[in-house]
Simulated assay, not measured.
Amino acid sequence: MTLHVAPAGQLSAEQVTSVLRAATLAPSTHNTQPWLFTSDRDAIELYADPDRVLPVADGDRRELLLSCGAALFNLRIAIRARGVHPDTTLFPRRGDPDLLAVIRPRSAASIDSRSAALARAIPRRHTNRAPFAAKPVPSDLVGLLRHAAETESAWLPRLDEDQLAGLNDLVRESHHVQSADPAFLAEWRRWTGRAPSSRDGVPFTAGGTAAADDTWVLRDFGDRAASAATPFPPLVVVLGSFGDSPADRVRAGQAMQRVLLTATMHGLDASFISQPVEVRATRIRLRHLLGDGLWPQIVLRLGYGEPVAWTPRRALADMLLERPSLSA
């Protein structure tokens, strides 16, 4: 497919291509890459790709919206790093739930050091499903991650020992629920264990290690730090939002990506513990565990890992809508 990208606002066609490529480096469930784009003289539009919904694991499109929110954050930061302000409107057209955002790069903006550093981290961030080392995450860095979430109107609550133990139980329970569902397993197998030549899905080289038992940090990851005798297990955080509407979920995806890029800037790796938020019953119980004030959107495992294989990306031309933009 030929790549046809139009200039948008103060961005040239070449710059639009560059910022769209940055957007496509966002994480997504099973590396589905569920986003589409258009550009015209005034704006860039971000759409959800309905053909890439996971009907079993993500029947309400929550994780699709989180993934697209992460792509939107990359897009915003990449534009800002070029000295242009990304004026962004979420869900601008009532009746079109797939049009998630319109970004109008109209006016010049100063390039602050934080935005530039976040933009540089975009190509370096990747999900690390391999074991993490027995090395603690410094408390001041945890504070920076919390601040990153709050900047995008989300929160990383502090979990006490009882809450972590409860989360452990919910991960185990949700894992068993999904493992007993033939439809879930069939969907999971379609998207994981793919050949390195595949442009989407998770290649077998990036799949992490097999579980040794039901302990949540071991299950799927095999962390060297998972033993009860080891003083420094991986850091586990829950990112939550005060609402759970589609717009709240897109905002939470932006917060997630700011947290992940902040982690990358400081040498941290991250991966997702998706089961307790994918199973509706355990997600509701996790909300209760957090005090009923936040909707849990993402559970992240953070730590210091060895280099792992990168997950692939589709060609940008495959993510561009053929029809003209309607933003003008």
Rank of each mutant, 00 (worst) to 15 (best):
Thr2Ala: 10
His4Arg: 12
Ala8Asp: 06
Ala8Leu: 13
Ala8Val: 11
Gly9Phe: 10
Ala13Gln: 01
Ala13Asp: 06
Gln15Asn: 04
Thr17Val: 02
Ser18Gly: 12
Val19Arg: 10
Arg21Tyr: 04
Ala23Ile: 09
Thr24Arg: 05
Ala26Thr: 04
Pro27Leu: 01
Ser28Asp: 08
Ser28Val: 01
Asn31Phe: 01
Leu36Gly: 05
Phe37Gln: 03
Ser39Met: 05
Ser39Ile: 11
Glu45Cys: 14
Tyr47Lys: 02
Asp49Pro: 10
Pro50Gln: 05
Asp51Thr: 11
Pro55Thr: 00
Asp58Asn: 05
Asp58Tyr: 08
Asp60Ala: 03
Arg61Met: 06
Arg62Ala: 08
Leu64Trp: 07
Cys68Glu: 10
Ala70Thr: 12
Phe73Cys: 11
Phe73Ser: 11
Asn74Thr: 13
Leu75Ser: 11
Ile79Met: 06
Gly83His: 07
Val84Lys: 11
Arg94Leu: 12
Gly95Lys: 01
Gly95Ala: 13
Asp96Arg: 11
Asp96Trp: 06
Asp98Ile: 09
Leu100Gly: 15
Ile103Thr: 14
Arg106Met: 15
Ser110Pro: 13
Ile111Trp: 03
Ile111Phe: 12
Ser115Ala: 15
Ala119His: 02
Arg120Asp: 15
Ala121Gln: 09
Pro123Met: 07
Pro123Asn: 10
Pro123Lys: 07
Arg125Phe: 11
His126Ile: 00
Thr127Asn: 05
Asn128His: 10
Arg129Pro: 00
Ala130Arg: 03
Pro131Arg: 02
Ala133Glu: 06
Ala133His: 12
Ala133Pro: 11
Lys135Pro: 00
Pro136Glu: 03
Val137Tyr: 06
Val137Ser: 05
Pro138Val: 11
Leu141Val: 09
Leu141Ser: 03
Thr151Val: 14
Glu152Lys: 08
Leu156Trp: 10
Leu159Phe: 10
Gln163Phe: 00
Leu164Arg: 14
Leu164Thr: 07
Asp169Gly: 10
Asp169Tyr: 09
Leu170Lys: 07
Arg172Cys: 01
Asp181Thr: 06
Pro182Gln: 03
Phe184Asp: 02
Trp188Ser: 02
Arg189Thr: 07
Gly193Cys: 08
Arg194Leu: 15
Ala195Phe: 07
Ala195Pro: 02
Ser198Arg: 08
Asp200Lys: 03
Gly201Thr: 02
Gly201Asn: 00
Val202Thr: 11
Phe204Gln: 14
Thr209Pro: 02
Ala210Phe: 08
Asp213Cys: 09
Trp216Met: 14
Val217Ser: 13
Leu218Val: 05
Gly222Thr: 01
Arg224Glu: 02
Ala225Asp: 12
Ala226Ser: 13
Ser227His: 14
Thr230Ser: 15
Pro233Ser: 05
Leu235Lys: 05
Leu239Gly: 09
Ser245Val: 01
Pro246Met: 00
Ala247Pro: 01
Val250Tyr: 08
Arg251Val: 12
Gln254Phe: 06
Gln257Trp: 04
Leu261Trp: 12
Ala263Gln: 12
Thr264Pro: 09
Met265Gly: 13
Met265Ser: 14
His266Arg: 07
Gly267His: 09
Ala270Met: 12
Ile273Pro: 02
Val277Phe: 08
Glu278Ser: 00
Ala281Trp: 00
Arg283Met: 06
Leu286Glu: 08
Leu289Thr: 14
Trp295Ser: 10
Pro296Glu: 01
Gln297Leu: 06
Val299Met: 07
Gly303Val: 10
Pro307Cys: 03
Ala309Gly: 08
Trp310Ile: 08
Pro312Asp: 11
Ala317Asn: 12
Glu322Thr: 15
Pro324Ile: 01
Ser327Ala: 15
Ser327Cys: 06
